[in-house]
Design a protein around this nucleic acid. Structure first.
Lengths: 221, 221
DNA sequence: TAAATAGTGTCTATAAGACAATATATG
DNA sequence: CATATATTGTCTTATAGACACTATTTA
């Protein structure tokens, strides 16, 4: 029975060379919100635009491979990769058997300018996430999953990815949520949902005209 | 610059042999609900209990590897694997560099008896999912993720995994949800939530005493 | 004071949850 | 009829969303 043969192989001390092994890559949707638009980092290659990615090296976790690829290809540092899904169709990559583990990373809009400067030899191309067509193989699907995951996390929390700074007005938070959700949200209902997650400060941010808005910080959670 | 070298490698026609590659395995939490308990399939090995799993073979998708491992090790057929997460800690397996892609599979309680018979040489050990301790490496974490994923899908749908048969009473559905959620649910609120997802039939299931319950089927969704 | 933005009070429609009443079976 | 289970009606309370009102700033 083949089940016995399989078990015997797994109990042996060096069974790993008995099998052909796949190459494992990571591909990452780097998202930010800037000027009321949800943006993603795309890099050009021969066949079109793609998400930044790399092969995973020995002794490296997937998350570290993501960090390495973003540092090298987009000059992005200090982020927290979230795993989304493994894409494993046997012939999705014509170079051979390559699985890709899709990831999501978010970058605060405030650090986008720094990011561009850091990758000195590489243009860091931010694109509107909703206008990103013609991506290679399954990268459009990765982008959709990333946006949906971001939406899900912002549906229940004020700013889990700290896309705003430490202090922000409720209207800035509202515009962030509207951009991520892709729809208008009632301001008064929104306030009531967010207030108990936030801490009011003594400071205010004056606008060009009108009553200055109270600044808030994140709660202890 | 190392980014350039990396790009050159990826554009070459046979770059896949330049890197050491990981072994990729699948491990699956097979869940069912039987007699008011959430149960999981565990198989014994030298270090303790573990979830059924196998290495992924060349030319095979992750889902197919899951199906093969369940057929061989537990006699389970006709299921639909759902991907949960990749476990990738570099030294999680002392045989070498092994990543494991965790999966969730559900089996209707009605087919559990058949499943046991089908694996003629293998005892199919169902265990209470909440009493499953002492699992090898990260399998306890996989089980937690599987249970949470199952709970999430039953929070919004009547019986997405078809754990009940084609016809069932609302009280049978209520007991299923209570077992999965791990808490009591109000019966009248539950009815109102479920009714519009279900189709009432002309049939009834008589109990030992009392008014026979109406049988329902799933809606068109 | 006029205009603009920030923040709050209140009303209504809807949904959740608990409780009670009704319906239909067995013995 | 007594009892047990199924099913529905209704009441209370909480929440969502819309609207309008108040507050505070600049010009």
């Amino acid at each position: 029975m083949s089940a016995n043969r399989d078990s015997a192989q797994k109990r042996a001390s060096a069974p790993l060379t008995d099998f052909e092994r796949p190459s494992v890559a990571v591909d990452t949707a780097v998202l930010t919100v800037a000027d009321g638009a949800l943006c993603v980092v795309l890099v050009p290659n021969a066949e079109g635009w793609r998400l930044p990615g790399t092969f995973v090296h020995a002794g490296e976790t997937l998350a570290l491979a993501v960090l390495r690829s973003l540092r090298q290809k987009a000059g992005i540092e200090g982020v927290h990769p979230r795993q989304l899904h493994v894409f494993d169709a046997p012939h999705r990559d014509d170079r051979g058997w390559v699985m890709s583990v899709a990831h999501l990373v978010t970058v605060p809009a405030a650090s986008v300018a720094d990011t561009v400067l850091a990758g000195s030899t590489v243009l860091t191309p931010w694109h509107d996430a909703h206008d990103a067509h013609d991506l290679v193989c399954d990268h459009a699907q990765i982008l959709r999953m990333a946006v949906e995951t971001l939406r899900q996390s912002y549906r229940t929390h004020a700013d889990p990815d700290r896309l705003l700074g430490t202090e922000f007005t409720l209207y800035e938070l509202l515009r962030l949520h509207e951009t991520i959700a892709g729809e208008r949200l009632g301001k008064d209902t929104f306030r009531r949902h967010m207030r108990d997650q936030l801490v009011e400060t003594d400071s205010h941010r004056p606008g060009v005209v009108g009553k200055p808005a109270t600044l808030f910080r994140h709660g202890s959670s």
